[in-house]
Structure formats: C-alpha cells, structure tokens
Design a binder for these strands. Structure first.
Lengths: 110, 110
DNA sequence: AATCTTTATCGTAATATTGCAATATTAAAC
DNA sequence: GTTTAATATTGCAATATTACGATAAAGATT
C-alpha cells in the first residue's frame, strides 16, 4: 500500500486533511507567512527568501496552489502568488469550532 | 534527498508544520472528530469507528500523539486517548491571526 | 494458569514526498 | 532576434508515509 484511502472518509474530512497537509511542511508555512508579510502578492523574490533551491520552492508553491491555499496568476515573466483567503478562513472556522466544542464540553479526564 | 530540511526554518514554523502535518490525513481528522464527539476520552472503540485495520489506526494515533494533538494514558488494558486542547488552541490562534491580518491588509490583487 | 480482549510493535510492500541539477518555457529588455 | 530573468517541468535519488498481516505485550476474565 502507501496510498491514503480517501474514499473511506467524508469529503469534508478529506478537504480539511488536504489543506492541513499542504501546510504540513515548514517551507510552506514560511511561504504563506512571507505572503502575508509582504502584503502585496507580487512576489517574485520568494525564492530568495527561502533556504531552498528554486525548483523545490516552485514545487512547494504548486502544492499550496493545488490545495487551494494560494492563488497564482501569470503576470509577465513573473507569477503573482497570493493567499487564498477562503481556504484559510475555512481552517480558522474549523479550529475555532473545535476549540469552542472542547471548552463547552470540558472533557474531564486525562 | 527526501528529508525535510527542518534546520533551516524557525522553531515556530516547524511546530506549526508538525501539527498541521499530523492533521494532514483524513483518518486522523476522523479520529479527532470522533474524540470530540464522544466527549469522554475513554475510547476503546476507535478502531471500529474507522475503516482501517487496527495496526493502521494504532499508527495514526501514535502520530497524533507524537505531534501533541492527543494525549494518551494507559488505563488497564485499554488506552485512554483524548484531545490535547493546548495544541488545538495553538492552531486556532495561529489561523485566527492570519485571517485577521488578511482582513486588515485587504490584499488588493489577484 | 489458560484464555480473551485490547493495543502496540515488527516487518514489509506500495506509494508519496522532498530536494535538487539539468533543462524547458516564456516574456521582457536590449 | 538574442540575451536576460523568472518560473516551471523533468528526472532521479533519498527518505517518509500508508497500510496491513503477523505477532507481541499486558491486564482482565474465567
């Protein structure tokens, strides 16, 4: 085996897992933090910001994009990447919901 | 290669990535959702709840535990697993912070 | 003590991820 | 049109993940 059995889980569970997985690498965390920091999304210098080779960065960007975390549009010979707020909002809501439930239930063991 | 270059990123970036990675699998999302649902954390029937073999579930639990997402204590011949609220709180805060920043900056392209 | 029940670990196969050098692509600059 | 600059793709090696059968461990039950 080695392949995740996505078909056995709900779409929602798979969707959250996909987004979480995309953020499950420090380079990709660094990328989104940089995108947030620079405010604007014209960010041709992302490679210089990261301690990784250009193809590696490109690959991480591709993964973030395919998970819907970032959006990218071609803009001349540079790519304009920026955060997809919808995805991060979903994650935020998801975790907020969990935290709220945990607080409400006050799970009283362990 | 194939190994993540964790040494090139900050501890904070690695910490978030580790937690996100642990949640980057639908089975592990299903596990924490189940733990939340049952309220109590004495949960010997987690295997029956998931469409995976027992060793696989055990492995997923181990990963969640080593990432600090869940806590587990031995309790007779069963294990008492429950959510570690601290970890989820960190994630919630992290994403809330991002969303807040994004709203404030109103990133005006793409 | 033998058995049952539950969870962990080992071993292993299939697959995925990470990282980079080399190369391709594509548009701007000259 | 040639060079430059920026990003993408390809190919590949190293490593990690996913999944499960077999087996081990350890307390509970009889």
């Amino acid at each position: 085996m080695g392949a995740t059995k996505t078909e056995n889980f709900t779409d929602r569970q798979n969707a959250i897992a996909t987004m979480a997985k995309a953020l499950g690498h420090p380079a990709r965390i660094a990328i989104i933090e940089y995108l947030i920091k620079v405010n604007t999304c014209i960010c041709g210098d992302i490679v210089n910001e990261l301690p990784l080779a250009q193809p590696t960065v490109s690959q991480h960007l591709k993964e973030l994009k395919s998970a819907g975390i970032i959006k990218g549009d071609i803009e001349g010979n540079t790519i304009c990447y920026c955060i997809d707020e919808k995805a991060l909002h979903k994650l935020q809501t998801y975790f907020e919901n969990i935290v709220t439930k945990l607080e409400k239930k006050k799970n009283n063991c362990c």
